Computed example of a mutant assay.
Amino acid sequence: MSRPQCPRCLRPQSHCLCPLIPRLDSRTRVLLLQHPSEVNHALNTARLAALGLTNAELIVGEVFEDLPKLLNQPGYQARLLFPAEDAQPLPAYAANDQPMLLVVPDGTWRKARKMLHLNPLLAALPRVTLAEGGVSRYRLRKAPGPGALSTIEAIVQALETLEAPSTFAPLLKPFEALIEGQIAAMGEETFQRNHGDR
C-alpha cells in the first residue's frame, strides 16, 4: 500500500515540502527539461526549482517536439546550461540588457547528453557554464567531479550570477529539508559510515 502523496511536490503527505517552497520572481526565464527517469526520484530538485520560481517551466521527456516554440521566447536569448569547450561563463551575461532563457537539462550526465543527442536544436544552443569551485550541499551523493551541483543548486548559482545582488537562496530551503529528512531516515550512524568522509 502506497502512502498518500502531495500532488504538488510529489512527496509523501507526511513529508510535504510545500510550506518551504518560496515563490520567487526572476528576470531570467528558466526552462527545465527533465529526463523521465528523474520524475519519481526521491530528490527531484528540478521540480522544487520549477515550483519555487514564477518564471520557470518544467517539461518531462527525452525528445521535445515543441522545442522550436519553447526556445523562441520573444525578448529572451536562449542559452543552454551545460559544459562544453566553447561554453561562455555566466558572469559575461550578467550586465546584458536582454534577459536570458536559461535551458537546464535535468538527469544524470549520461542521460542529459542523450537528450542533447536526440534534440539537435537543443545541442546547437550556445552554452553557458557556472563559475568553477561551486560546492554541493548534496551530502547524500558522491559528486562525479569538483563543481558538480544538483539541478536546484546550479539554478540558484546561475540566477545569483545573472541577477546580482538578488538572492535565490530561499530556493534551497526545501532541498536542505529533503536532505536532512533522508539523513534522519537512514540514521546518523549509517550516514556517517556511508557519507561522512567526503
Rank of each mutant, 00 (worst) to 15 (best):
R27A: 05
P144Q: 13
G134Q: 14
Y138T: 07
G107L: 06
K173A: 04
S2D: 11
P99W: 01
I183D: 09
I152D: 00
L17H: 02
R127M: 02
F168G: 00
I59L: 10
G196N: 10
P4C: 05
L24K: 05
L17C: 06
N40T: 07
G181I: 08
M1L: 15
A158V: 03
V135M: 15
V103N: 01
E188R: 12
S166L: 11
A154F: 02
A148K: 10
L130Y: 01
R47H: 04
G187V: 14
A131C: 15
R139F: 11
I179A: 06
K111D: 11
R141F: 07
Y76I: 12
A87K: 04
L122N: 03
T129H: 03
R137G: 10
A154G: 08
P165A: 15
R137Y: 09
A185V: 14
T151I: 09
A158W: 01
S37I: 14
L172D: 01
S37L: 15
A177T: 12
D25V: 05
R11Q: 08
L58F: 08
K69E: 12
D197G: 14
F64D: 09
G75W: 12
Q182P: 04
Q157Y: 02
S136H: 12
L90M: 06
Q34D: 13
I152R: 00
L17E: 01
A185F: 13
R137K: 13
N40G: 09
P19K: 15
L121Q: 14
P146Q: 14
C9H: 03
Q157S: 06
L140I: 09
E180L: 11
P22C: 08
N40H: 10
L80C: 02
V63N: 10
